[in-house]
Amino acid sequence: MKRTIYYDLSYSRSLKAKTVFIYIVCILLSILSIFPFWVMFVNATRSSLQIKTSFSLLPSKYLIENWKTMINREAFNVFLGFKNSFFIATCSTILTVYFSALTAYGLAVYQFKLRKSAFTFIIAVLMVPTQVAAVGFYRLMASMNLNNTFIPLIVPAIAAPAVVFFMHQYIKSALLIEIVESARIDGAGELYIFNRIALPIFKPAIATQIIFSYITSWNNFFMPGMILTDVKKYTLPLMVQILKSDRFRTDYGVVYLGLSLTVLPLIIVYLLLSKHIIRGVALGSVKG
């Protein structure tokens, strides 16, 4: 009896020490995640001379000056990049989500001969990265005179196998067939049933996929890097390259300000939606 009590006490003490250690590790890792962004935002408010001659983690007061310098250097037009990125990401996300839901719904609700083969095909191409077909894609777009337009970055979004797969998993779990059949008895058309009855039921799955499709498109660098060569068409990730060029060699403050502006929208969205995003990551892995 004595022995057991002694054991439990030391055990709980070591447990406590371990817990303290874990909290310290977690705090250090959190700092590590934020540190580069913190330095970036702080340096965006410091003058180039300050950045050159000292290190600081506290903001200074040169934000407006850096802003003016940035606006005067027309090479880095963050607003244009923002506009282009916004247009491409919005269009491609709408297409991806709508047509993926439509495809998944078609596969789940209707019985037809090629249904199984169609689904197997989608699973088979799930992992094919876009990069492997990039040369063929680039040459095809060149022959169609579509390079340096937004079309090659938007229209292919209609076919997103991974999103179809995710939606399919969701539709299978949301009991649908009975609702569809009762809508049919009420005389509703098939497309009407999909748009007005099925889509609202998929809302949770759609919300998750909107967030991930948007972020993926927003951050995409490889494909826009191939297709868009005119600086006026540049998306934000392409615009960022300009900050590395010689034109900004000594404008340290402006470089950090430019970088800050390219991730600011993402940080705001992330802080608002982080719970959904993290839940989506966990969900996608266990189900997929």
Binding site: L107, V128, A133, G136, V155
Partner: peptide, 24 residues
Amino acid sequence: YGYLFIAPFFIVYAIFHLYPLLYT
């Protein structure tokens, strides 16, 4: 309707994904 609903996906996949892969 099944074919109709999955058609956009497969048409776009064929033109913008599968054909470029075979062409590559």
